[in-house]
């Protein structure tokens, strides 16, 4: 049996009055890559933001190494965050700083290391993601794939125990996307990290996933192995895996919101 690193229990979340996640429960095994799969707008990013303590749920618990982060004070949460690395959907590098400074930011913030040591660490992290030589570039000078790599370098700065990736290969050309998937595999194999990746790309899913959780309209419709997912005969899963277009089915409430432009 695999050891559980993160456990999500009956998570319910809202934006305003609108329910985004409904009774989401699953667990994330340690040292493996868990892929959270689902169509656009089904609440993947929202779920990820709860896992890193950026948003607080309406109800439910998130246990990281057995401790519930949903009831932690900000100070305590910062302690947990030091052990997490996060790649945001748009990489979210600070545009006013060079790549080197971006990667150095968490190190400077949380350690009192010598500047020369920090420089070496930064070079190592950029080397790891294949961006050595780009230290003095600004984020605006990089391509989409390079930004994501740089985002991963920053997430890796403090050698985290957990790595959270929001759509690491979305919006990239197939070759670049495959390169990022390779990088994620390498990170898992070399550093034995617990990786949680959100995606809607099937190619990524097949390359990186050890464990899959599938969301549909804020609910978990599948959790288990890749083989299990392939063997499932749930029409929603089959539709997703076979890229079958789904009739846009809004609930009357959602449709009203849609036409009311809200």
């Amino acid at each position: 049996m695999m050891e559980t690193a993160i456990e999500i229990r009956d998570l319910v979340t809202h934006y305003g009055d609108r329910e985004i996640l409904r009774d989401v429960s699953f667990s994330i095994p340690r040292g493996r890559t868990t892929v959270i799969l689902g169509g656009s707008g089904c609440g993947k990013s929202t779920l990820l933001k709860h896992l890193i303590g950026l948003l607080r749920p309406t109800k439910g618990a998130i246990l990281i190494n057995g401790m519930d982060i949903t009831v932690m004070k900000e100070e305590e949460l910062n302690g947990v965050r030091k052990r997490m690395g996060v790649l945001f959907q748009g990489a979210a590098l600070l545009n006013s700083m060079t790549l080197a400074d971006n990667v150095a930011l968490p190190i400077r913030e949380h350690t009192r290391l010598e500047e020369s040591t920090i420089q070496i660490m930064v070079r190592m992290k950029l080397d790891l993601v294949g961006l050595s030589g780009f230290e003095d570039f600004y984020p605006s000078q990089l391509s989409g794939g390079m930004k994501k790599r740089a985002g991963i370098a920053r997430a890796m700065a403090l050698d985290p125990e957990f790595l959270f990736l929001d759509e690491p290969s979305a919006g990239l050309d197939p070759v670049t996307a495959a390169g990022l998937d390779e990088l994620i595999l390498k990170l898992r194999n070399v550093f034995k990290m617990t990786i949680v990746a959100v995606t809607h790309e099937l190619s990524s899913l097949y390359t990186i996933a050890d464990h899959v959780v599938m969301l549909d309209r804020g609910q978990v419709i599948f959790k288990g192995s890749l083989e299990g997912l392939r063997a499932s005969d749930d029409p929603r899963i089959r539709g997703f895996l076979n890229r079958r277009p789904e009739a846009e089915s809004y609930s009357p409430e959602d449709y009203f919101r849609f036409i009311a432009g809200d």
Partner: peptide, 20 residues
């Protein structure tokens, strides 16, 4: 403008996630 565009680009979220 600076803080607003950082907010829109999730840079503020990134800061929080780094414990800053």
């Amino acid at each position: 403008a600076e803080i607003g565009s950082m907010k829109a680009a999730e840079e503020v979220d990134a800061l929080v996630s780094m414990g800053i």
